[in-house]
Design a protein around this nucleic acid. Structure first.
Lengths: 204, 204
DNA sequence: AATCCGCTGTGCAATTTTGAACACTTTTCG
DNA sequence: CGAAAAGTGTTCAAAATTGCACAGCGGATT
């Protein structure tokens, strides 16, 4: 990052504040250094869906790098205090042409993101909402503290989970209790996830 | 393409034959020059889903460009006779570092694909299967012959449509007839689409 | 302490979706 | 050609999902 000469514009974003909002012109891209953020979309009918969680090392707002000046397709919101580099479109293009390492970094990110989104789509096409909830719980656990056997998922409302799974809150509540009875999760000031059990359930 | 020195390995793929199949090692990428192909995924339970249609100018098999040698996440199948460049991973990396124009081309493609997949995911999260079918019909019409007022969608089975929409064939049959009664489409050796009407329906 | 407020656990009726049938109609191909 | 295969229109009961509604349960606010 430093060698690419991009260390200039560092910004801070407080929880619940936006990096940008759906519909705004997309003229810059962010590189998240610390914190957690989410990407959400709002439908015409007012429903909200969370389509991605973002952490350190993620780029936010790639749509700005597509050809013609376009608009933000989603809203990026900080969950906890965030630090990020703000990079103008033109500056980003210059950096990518100048630094192999940097363009490789961005390319790898884009590929990873694209494949993850594709996996989400497949999940949505194939699985029931119960399986999808199980999958999201596993992903969130991993997102929190990678590698731990029985991670704790910070604090997240069933409403938000419902947005991510693509279902209703009452459904999430129902499944969460089922998972609890089955011993897949424990509620103890946050959600503890038994990865092994959940994994078995997820893969049939 | 020519300036990047990639014009060597041209391959032909006949309809119903694969560029590659889900689970195989991913060591090369294809650049589709002529023809039509589709990307499908098969679930553990044997269900099939079509997650993208591919045409001239599309890259196929980007997963091979992700860091560590990985596996194909989907199967790419020719729909009509296809001509494509086959590019080895290492060669692709070299070309991208050597030619700005080429790396820009690939980057734009990746961004477009990523955004399209994201839109598909959002569609899946928000809309009913009827709306999703309407959307797929519109996209397919545009994919066939861009710009025409009342395009004809080549030849596609309800089974395939169902795979793309993420529903069952009987449901597709039901909706297609509804659309016909409402004048959104006509069956006349292929499917004629009244874009204006379908658009109105889609956007509430 | 009393109140408000957001989140959660439940119940239930209405609606949507699945999955599997069955009868036809086209296509494909030996 | 004629049989086999593929595709289509339609049912229908079973299952999953939605959309509400309402009650309890902290935690914060005054």
């Amino acid at each position: 990052m430093a060698t690419a000469g991009l260390g200039r514009k560092i910004i801070q974003v407080e929880p619940r504040r936006n990096f940008f909002a759906q519909g705004e012109p997309a003229d810059c891209i962010f590189y998240l250094q610390t914190g957690r953020a989410k990407l959400t979309v709002i439908s015409k009918s007012g429903k909200e869906a969370t389509i991605a969680l973002l952490g350190p090392g993620d780029f936010v707002g790639e749509e700005s790098m597509a050809g013609t000046p376009s608009l933000r397709m989603a809203t990026a919101t900080a969950i906890v205090p965030c630090t990020a580099l703000k990079i103008e479109r033109t500056e980003m293009i210059r950096a990518m042409h100048q630094e192999y390492a940097f363009s490789d970094l961005f390319l790898k990110f884009l590929l990873a993101r694209s494949m993850r989104t594709q996996a989400d789509l497949v999940d949505q096409l194939f699985n029931s909402s119960e399986k999808r909830l199980a999958r999201i719980l596993l992903l969130m656990a991993e997102f929190g503290q990678p590698g731990e056997a029985e991670p704790l998922i910070p604090k997240i409302s069933q409403e938000t989970l419902a947005e991510m799974v693509g279902t209703t809150r009452s459904r999430v509540s129902f499944f969460m209790n089922r998972f609890r009875k089955l011993g897949f999760i424990t509620y103890n000031g946050g959600i503890h996830v038994k990865k092994s059990l959940l994994n078995v359930f997820l893969h049939d």
